Amino acid sequence: MPQVLLVDDDPRFVKVVASLLSRRNLQVKSVSSGELARQALRNGDIDLALLDLNLPDIDGLSLIHELREEGNDTPVILLTARSKPHEQVLGLRLGGDDYITKPFDPELLLARIHAVLRRSGTGRTTDRGRSDLVDLSPALAGRSPVLVDLAARQVFRDGVAVRLAPMEYAVLEFLVRNRGRAVSKEEIMVQVWGTDRGVSRTLTEHISRLRRKLGEGLVVTRTGYGYIIPTAPEGPAARAQ
């Protein structure tokens, strides 16, 4: 599991971002100062850093320049409210791998993180038996096989990539990680959307889309409990909406 260092002195921001990343299978360590970030990055166990430029003890640009001068090549995504082009260019020239301005869309941040991790080769392997590849075919009883690559956040049906909207994938991933367990609608909403308001209409629509794209037998409704991706095929009655 990739480890992300979140460097920011705003506790509310840290709480929100850490929760988001944790739900997407990223291990998060947070620090609130440049000195603590310097120590964490020198330990060598960080796969990527999210670095705020406005730190209480040191400017983030100075920190990244210092680290690169030392030969530390840990990927860094710069986070800041500074939006002037010359500041972005300077951050990249000093050694930043990407730059994202606050406020930002959560899905954009996740996409940037995964893109940087892919470029750096973190956690990648050619072993198709690795644990982040999940074969859901046993639940489909001979229907078109479905494979989920949790590292690349890709889904394949019968060998063909299936395009899922970000929140469709988020729902699927949560069900995959809880495979064999019936999870309530409220639990899915809290984990994926961060709220359980508007449960029925929002979640039901996403489940319907997943069934259309991946096969009717994959996500099963357990009346009185919620939804489940079973480890073996279930009868038509269990799959009723």
Rank of each mutant, 00 (worst) to 15 (best):
Q3L: 13
Q3E: 15
V4P: 04
L5W: 02
D8L: 02
D10M: 10
P11A: 08
P11R: 08
R12N: 13
V14C: 10
L21P: 07
L21F: 11
R23A: 14
R24Q: 15
L26C: 10
V28Y: 03
V28G: 09
K29N: 12
K29E: 15
S30L: 06
S30T: 12
S33K: 02
R38F: 04
R38S: 11
D45H: 05
D45S: 14
D45T: 10
I46E: 07
D47Q: 05
D47W: 00
A49W: 00
L51W: 03
L53T: 01
N54A: 03
L55R: 00
I58R: 07
D59H: 05
L61F: 02
L63F: 05
E66V: 03
E69L: 03
E69Y: 00
E70R: 04
G71F: 01
N72I: 11
D73R: 10
D73W: 01
T80F: 00
A81Q: 12
K84F: 02
E87H: 03
G91Y: 00
L94K: 13
L94I: 05
L94H: 09
G95F: 02
D97G: 06
D98C: 05
D105I: 04
D105W: 01
E107I: 03
E107L: 03
L108A: 11
L110N: 02
A111G: 08
I113Q: 10
L117Q: 08
R118M: 12
R119P: 06
T122F: 01
T122C: 13
G123N: 13
G123I: 01
T126K: 09
T126W: 06
R128F: 09
R128T: 14
R128Y: 11
G129R: 02
R130L: 06
R130G: 11
S131Q: 13
L133K: 09
V134Y: 14
D135N: 15
D135V: 09
L136P: 02
L136K: 04
S137T: 15
S137M: 03
S137P: 06
S137W: 01
P138L: 12
L140A: 14
R143H: 10
R143T: 05
V146K: 06
V148Q: 10
L150P: 07
L150A: 07
A151R: 06
V155F: 02
G159H: 11
V160C: 13
V162Y: 05
P166W: 01
E168H: 05
Y169H: 09
Y169C: 07
L172H: 08
E173R: 01
L175Y: 00
V176F: 10
V176I: 07
R177H: 08
N178C: 12
R181H: 01
K185H: 09
E186M: 11
E186V: 04
E187K: 14
E187T: 14
W193A: 15
W193S: 14
G194N: 12
G194T: 08
D196N: 14
S200A: 12
R201K: 15
L203A: 07
T204H: 09
E205I: 11
H206C: 12
R209T: 09
R209H: 13
R211V: 07
R211N: 11
R212E: 15
L214C: 08
L214Y: 02
G215K: 06
G215A: 10
E216D: 15
L218T: 03
G226Q: 00
G226N: 00
I228Q: 04
P230Y: 07
T231M: 14
P233R: 01
P236L: 14
A240N: 10
A240Y: 00
A240R: 04
